[in-house]
């Protein structure tokens, strides 16, 4: 059997979702944004809700997410995506509304919008891509940057407090990495809160199932934010090869940002 015999439409088992446009992603090689875009598009295609979907793009690397999804989209100001989603969902309760945001957008400048959309229990889906760094602006510290992690604005590593020496030890410095996902899970307005990743096939499958649940909950429900964090990479700003970055993610990000469901059907998952 030759390769030509296999490559036939009837033997197709996997291809890029039709809900992605032909425009090539501008993301760096190996970036988890692309993978996350792909599985969101697959979920929307499988659910058949593309004619009812309005996405909200953030400011950050994924600012032009609207170019890649073949669904209607709005571009938000930095951090305001949950406010846009609220504004939309309240006047279009039957449409499928989702935000796509990075860590700086969702957990720094947009913290108020994030917490209050979650606390109001807006019936929306929020996708949160956490790579622990500001990608678009060139690798500065994010609220989710790990302690010790070197970034453009923490060139000697993030320090929550100043270290011993020179008599300043213990004084606040860069603060602590923020587990915003655990934080919003505490709010009564969140329904489904989960942390996933996309660095290997097994976790891509799980992440896709979680995203599907996050959309199904919205479609079948009346209230409650469905929140999916994707722990992702930033090869360029972590200054690593893509495969090495994924290994670093597993070894360093996941111990602090453990994968799994945090809240299901409005109930915190017992650990």
């Amino acid at each position: 059997m030759t390769i030509e015999d296999i490559i036939k439409p009837e033997n197709l088992v996997y291809q890029k979702s039709k809900l992605l446009t032909e425009k090539p992603f501008h993301y760096c090689p190996g970036c988890g944004h692309g993978t996350t875009h792909r599985i969101i598009a697959e979920v929307l295609e499988e659910l058949g809700v593309d004619e009812e979907t309005i996405g909200v793009a953030p400011v950050g690397c994924s600012v032009m997410a609207y170019d890649y999804f073949d669904v209607d989209f709005q571009e938000a100001a930095h951090g305001r995506a949950p406010a846009l989603a609220t504004g939309l969902k309240r006047v279009w309760p039957n449409k499928v509304i989702f935000t796509y945001q990075g860590d700086g957008d969702l957990a720094a400048i947009g913290t108020a919008e994030t917490i209050h959309a979650c606390n109001r229990g807006e019936n929306i889906t929020m996708i949160f891509v956490n790579n622990g760094i500001y990608g678009m602006t060139g690798g500065q510290m994010a609220p989710t940057t790990l302690e010790g992690m070197k970034t453009a604005t923490t060139p000697y590593g993030r320090k929550a407090t100043l270290p011993a020496g020179a008599g300043f030890d213990g004084i606040p410095c860069n603060g602590y990495p923020l587990r915003i996902t655990e934080l919003i899970a505490q709010l009564p307005g969140t329904k489904f809160v989960t942390r996933q990743a996309v660095y290997n096939p097994a976790c891509v499958r799980k992440a896709k199932a979680a995203i599907k649940k996050a959309f199904e909950n919205q479609i079948n429900g009346k209230s409650g934010v469905n929140f999916v964090e994707i722990v992702s990479n930033c090869n360029s700003n972590w200054k690593m090869e893509p495969v090495a970055a994924n290994k670093w993610l597993v070894e360093n990000m996941l111990p602090f940002y453990p994968l799994g469901d945090i809240k299901v059907d409005g109930k915190l998952v017992e650990k």
């Binding site: 296999i6 088992v13 890029k16 993301y27 993978t35 792909r38």
Partner: peptide
């Protein structure tokens, strides 16, 4: 073996996978 792992993890969606049962 047509498992589609490559397609699943490809960040740019450039891989299409075909499979036949022998």
């Amino acid at each position: 073996i047509g498992c589609a792992s490559c397609g699943m993890v490809c960040p740019d969606g450039v891989i299409t996978v075909y499979k036949v049962k022998l």
